[in-house]
């Protein structure tokens, strides 16, 4: 007869597992991956494959030969890091730069802290910021709009009514710069806000994602689809995305009201740049976000404000990565300061 087992209660376990959560996130990224392939063509596939493969192989190698622990590549977290890294770089990036990014992301930001769940900073963002600082030339040379249009299948162009016009705007306007770059560059050279705005793609175009930028930041709709899926699967909660976007919107709105001649309307700040990708996929990373709901709200607000400060007054046109990384550093503090309300605790 089999031996009886003794263990502490509870004797049943929920259906959730790390694998399911991680692969759930990967599934949520599929619309974004598809969108990036549609807009950037096979180059996007190239970038994603290199990045994911590099991350996964690196994690396996490090666990096998340096940490000598059982391999956990199967849990999918390396795939997430790889995809996020790919989403954060331009589609024409050289393969070796991507691999360096992967080494930094997995090797330095994740495994050196002990692997899954122990990293204080979002690995993909660390990789991305490292690349941005080390290879500013390559990291900010975005694929030209003309190429972009050639690679958009005709069917899609026809299907999205009214999008044709948007593409033309893009084709005329973006010559290798992202909308955030246009705004920053335009305002820096003393152009009026209305002139700058005129150069930007319209809302419909940006919702679908037809403007320049890194792989994953362009298509707002695809990001929202993934976000809704993750909310539905209870992988993320609404707190971080809503407070992140909300605080950024309000801050940008206030600045716009104060001086409409200097600051563009707040909607543009949400539509362009990496803020959507950051708010939905990167700030919500479980390991690097606070535990309590209130903590998450504070974290989101911090991210939103920092993003806007960097965007409006910083040297870089885009500030999402830096904002999230800075707030990551605050997470342990936030965790201790904002605790969940205890049952039976005195209410004032």
């Amino acid at each position: 007869m089999n031996l009886l087992t003794i263990s502490g209660s509870p004797h049943v376990h929920g259906k959730e597992s790390v694998q399911k959560i991680m692969w759930g996130v990967v599934v949520a990224m599929i619309p974004l991956a598809v969108a990036s392939v549609l807009f950037f063509g096979w180059n996007a596939v190239r970038v994603m494959i290199i990045s994911v493969a590099a991350c996964a192989i690196l994690e396996w190698l490090i666990q096998k030969f340096i940490m000598k622990t059982p391999a956990t590549v199967g849990d999918g977290s390396a795939v997430i890091t790889g995809l996020l890294l790919a989403f954060n770089v331009p589609s024409n990036l050289d393969w070796w730069i991507i691999v360096i990014g992967a080494i930094i992301a997995i090797g330095v930001a994740k495994m050196s802290f002990g692997g899954l769940g122990k990293n204080p900073f979002n690995p993909a963002l660390v990789g991305r910021v490292f690349l941005l600082i080390s290879f500013p030339q390559q990291m900010t040379t975005w694929p030209k709009a003309k190429e972009l249009i050639e690679q958009v299948p005709q069917a899609i162009t026809a299907a999205t009514s009214g999008a044709t016009q948007a593409i033309e705007v893009v084709a005329d306007a973006t010559t290798g710069a992202t909308p955030m770059g246009i705004i920053k560059g335009g305002l820096a050279t003393g152009q009026d806000v209305s002139d700058v705005v005129a150069q930007l793609p319209d809302y419909v175009g940006s919702l679908i994602g037809q403007h320049g930028g890194s792989l994953g930041e362009i298509s707002v709709i695809a990001i929202l689809l993934g976000g809704i899926f993750m909310l539905f699967r209870k992988i993320i909660t609404w707190h971080i995305p809503v407070s992140f976007l909300g605080s950024a919107f309000i801050f940008a709105g206030i600045m716009h009201l104060i001086n409409p001649g200097l600051y563009i309307p707040p909607m543009y700040h949400l539509m362009f740049g990496g803020i959507m990708l950051g708010a939905v996929f990167m700030a919500t990373d479980m390991a690097t976000s606070p535990m309590s709901s209130w903590g998450q709200v504070v974290f989101g607000i911090g991210c939103g404000l920092l993003t806007m400060i960097i965007r409006l007054w910083g040297a870089y046109p885009e500030g999402v990565s830096f904002a999230i990384l800075i707030m990551n550093a605050f997470v342990p503090l936030i965790n201790r300061a904002f605790k969940p309300k205890r049952f039976g605790e005195k209410v004032k």
């Binding site: 031996l3 009886l4 087992t5 003794i6 263990s7 502490g8």
Partner: peptide, 15 residues
Amino acid sequence: IDYDAVGSCYFAHTL
């Protein structure tokens, strides 16, 4: 008997 819980004598002792 098969013990399948956290590897702590202190805890096993209570079980």
